[in-house]
Structures are given as C-alpha cells and as structure tokens.
C-alpha cells in the first residue's frame, strides 16, 4: 500500500509537468487547431536559457522568472516570423514547419551547449518536506503547476485581454469586428504557451537531467494528456496530465515494468484518437468538407 501511495504521488508530480505542457499544446490548438510538435523543444530551449543564467550565478527564482519571460518572447517571435507565413497552408506544410522548428531548436541547443547531460537544480530542498511519500521536488512541482494553472485561469477569466484571446480563438471574424487584433492574439497565445512550457521544462529537468532530447518522452505524455482530456479543453488537459502521470507511474511500477512506460503514452494516444477523438471533456470534432 505504501509503495502504491508513493507511486501515485510521484505520478501526480510528473503529471503536473505533463499537465503544464499539455496546457501549452491546448492553448495553441484552441487558437489555431494545430498541434505544435515543437512545443517540447521550445521548453527544452528555454530550460537551457535558465541553466545559463543559474550557471552565471543568478539565484534560482529570478532566473526562473526571467526564463518565463524569455520563453514568452521566443514564442511570440516564432509565431510572427515562422508560423505566420504558413498559417493558411495545408496541414502537411504546417507539420513540416513544426518539425523543422523542432529540429532546429534541438540542434542549435546541441551545438551551443553540447549534447552532454547536465544537472539542473531544483529550487526545493533535498530533505523531504512534504512527508515521507513524496520528494520535495515532486511536491514543489505540483505546487508550481497549481500556481501556474490558477494564474492562467484568472487571466482568461477576469482580464479583458484574456477574454479577447478567447474571443479571437473562437470566432476570429467576429473578434475583428469588435476591434481585436486577432493576429497579435495568436502570437500572444504562442507566447503564453511557450512560457507555460518553460515552467514544465524547468520542473522536469531536475528529474530527467538536462539534455537536448529530454522533452521527447515528456511531449508524448503531454500529447496523451491533452488527448485524454479533450484537446480543446484546458481543464481536461490538466486532468489528463495528472491522470497520465499516475497511470504511467503505477502501471510502470506494478504492471508492465519501467521499460514500457512510454508505450502507455502510445497506447493512450492511438486509443483515444481512434475510440473517442474528442477525449473525455472535449467537444466532437467536425471537419468541413
């Protein structure tokens, strides 16, 4: 029982990280109906930025905040410069652009920082502060995730800009008719997604260590989380994130073994897509002919 509880809590900790990245995916999906394959690499890139700051002597939390800002700007710039020109292109073209982005970020990071694995600090103490069942980093990561979610919720629910972003995502034409600059809202969405992703990156790096390929698996779990919850539903994505985290850990520890953990993500992704593409909380997808 103890072992089980331990795994569930560990699952919640990584689940929070998946939830953050899933949320980033959902934000871009809601606005553009696209799944950003480069979301993980953007997060990884931002995490290297944080590592450089910390390595240069900056204390953790200022570096954390500066990284979030950096990621935000990175997201906005990528949208305006790279995504904007292909906005209305066929899916294949857009997927290729995402993959190009993934490859470029991955290789530039490898080039600049080398492919050797680096340790990344956790802001939380080494001794357990949340009881015996969960590491302090795990507990802290859950806390950070919840704070991010709360901030996002408040932003979208209570600020005019958040409302405008929701409006632009839902009905771009009407949004223009009330004077919303829809293009900038998309860029802002990319910025926010990248910022959330950077938090996920900084939270996962102490666990998996920092290397240019560290987000591959995380991205897959985040895909699974977003799909399970409903890819157009932010709340669902968060729920999906925690669920996938727990499933991965519990199944990995007691049923299928750690080697096949990633298969959980694969099965979930294909299973959800085939059986119920709208996920648990999503709306049914309708394509226009």
């Amino acid at each position: 029982m103890d072992a089980f509880l331990h795994q569930v809590l560990a699952g919640l900790a990584t689940g929070g990280i998946y939830a953050s990245l899933a949320l980033a995916l959902v934000m871009i999906y809601q606005a553009t109906h696209l799944v950003n394959f480069a979301q993980g690499e953007m997060a990884m890139f931002a995490t290297y930025f944080a590592w450089s700051l910390i390595n240069a002597g900056m204390p953790y939390w200022p570096a954390f905040l500066l990284t979030v800002v950096f990621a935000f700007v990175l997201g906005v710039v990528i949208e305006r410069v790279i995504i904007r020109p292909v906005e209305n292109s066929p899916v294949l073209v857009i997927v290729v652009v995402f993959i190009a982005l993934l490859v470029i970020l991955n290789s530039v990071t490898g080039w600049v920082f080398s492919y050797t694995i680096k340790t990344f600090p956790s802001p939380f103490p080494a001794e357990p502060i949340f009881g015996q069942y969960i590491t302090s980093h795990g507990g802290g990561a859950i806390g950070v995730t919840l704070v991010v979610l709360l901030l996002l919720y408040a932003f979208f629910r209570f600020t005019p800009l958040g409302l405008a972003m929701r409006a632009a995502a839902q009905n771009p034409e009407s949004a223009r008719l009330v004077g919303i600059r829809v293009g900038w809202m998309l860029a802002l969405g990319w910025g926010l997604a990248a910022a959330i992703g950077s938090v996920a990156g900084m939270m996962v790096a102490p666990i998996v260590f920092l290397d240019p390929n560290m987000m591959g698996g995380v991205l897959l779990y985040a895909f699974a989380a977003a799909l399970v919850g409903g890819i157009d539903n932010p709340g669902g994505a968060v729920f999906g994130g925690f669920l996938v985290g727990v499933l991965e850990n519990v199944l990995g520890a007691f049923v299928i073994g750690n080697e096949l953990k990633l298969a959980v993500a694969l099965v979930l992704i294909i299973g959800v897509l085939v059986v119920k593409p709208s996920g648990i909380f999503g709306k049914v997808m309708v394509t226009r002919v």
Partner: peptide, 24 residues
C-alpha cells in the same frame, strides 16, 4: 458591424459578449 449570422461568440456568456463590444 452587426454581421449576418450575428457573429455571436457562442461559448462566452451574454455579458462577456457585450464586454467584448467595448474591447477597444
């Protein structure tokens, strides 16, 4: 512009729709 088809933001509340009208 009050467009044909009304351009409602269907997933937002009535009041949110109105507030959007005053966005600028």
């Amino acid at each position: 512009h009050v467009p044909d088809g009304r351009g409602t933001f269907v997933n937002l509340t009535t009041e949110e729709n109105l507030r959007l009208g005053a966005y600028t």
